[in-house]
């Protein structure tokens, strides 16, 4: 079974992230790493491979040169090979451009199963898995807390907008998994060493038959007008409980008309 796991190299979500002047995510000022939410996708792919399925796992990412770090991190957790799509014309792509590049790279590689995280920690839209499925013409079994691969189908549990549903789609398929799907493993020292020897292929837009104007800022279908830092919240009154902390809080809430 050919498994492709899509991963993203993102600015550290615990740092102070910011924008460049032209409204894109600033990837220079903050250290980047493998998106935490993608670690769950890596983990689930590895668990499928460990469940007795004869699987070949390839990680796929798009990004500048240092996005390779995300691939090496994933390879250190396990898996077989990686594909890095890098082209300066991709910069500024929206979810449509991103999903086009990913879909072409996945088609080129071949796949039975594509595994994604539920969203990136920077863009946070969470729509790329659905767009990938739409482009690839395969089922999107997305937002899963739990999944199982059996008899050529993927079955899972999804917390939808108003109900919890059990869903099933036949392979080939795109799945996305949530941060509740199971804790991701840490790479072992041996894994880190082994990752350095695993094959990593680099592709550009021409390799994928994509014209520059289909992606990047030119191909994007929406534009940011303004990006303003919210004024930081200012700390109000902090009191130590002297035995009447609840009463004091009630007085505050009454003044604010919540009581």
């Amino acid at each position: 079974m050919k498994i492709v796991v899509c991963v993203k190299h993102v600015p550290d979500a615990t740092a102070d992230r910011t924008f460049t002047e032209d409204g894109n995510t600033d990837r220079e000022s903050v250290d980047s790493l493998l998106s935490e939410l993608d670690e769950y996708a890596v983990e689930q792919a590895l668990r499928v491979a460990e469940s007795g399925v004869d699987a070949d796992i390839t990680y796929l990412t798009i990004g500048p040169d240092d996005a390779k770090d995300a691939l090496r991190k994933a390879l250190a957790m396990g898996g077989d090979s990686a594909v890095h799509v890098s082209d300066e014309d991709i910069e500024g792509s929206d979810a449509f451009g991103t999903s086009l590049v990913l879909a072409r790279a996945i088609e080129r590689h071949g796949f039975d199963l594509v595994v994604c995280g539920m969203a990136s920690t920077d863009g946070t839209m969470g729509v790329v898995p659905a767009l990938l499925a739409e482009r690839l013409g395969v089922p999107a079994v997305t937002h899963l807390d739990e999944l199982a691969i059996e008899d050529g189908a993927v079955t899972g549990r999804r917390e939808g907008d108003s109900a919890t549903v059990r869903v099933q789609g036949t392979l080939p398929a795109v799945v996305s998994v949530t941060d509740r799907s199971g804790d991701a493993r840490y790479p072992s020292f041996k894994g880190i060493m082994a990752a350095k020897k695993k094959p990593l292929e680099t592709l550009d837009l021409a390799d994928l038959g994509i014209a520059p104007e289909q992606v990047g800022r030119t191909g994007a279908r929406s534009a940011v007008d303004t990006a303003a830092k919210r004024p930081p919240r200012t700390q109000g009154e902090i009191v130590a409980d002297d035995g009447a902390g609840g009463v004091g809080l009630a007085t505050f809430l009454t003044a604010k008309k919540f009581i």
Partner: peptide, 28 residues
Amino acid sequence: IFDLADYGVVGDLFKVLPQLVEEIERRR
């Protein structure tokens, strides 16, 4: 969390919250 708080109580929630409930009921 206190950096964001408009009002904060440093204390045991098992003491502060029940007292707050009692006070809400009393005020009402």
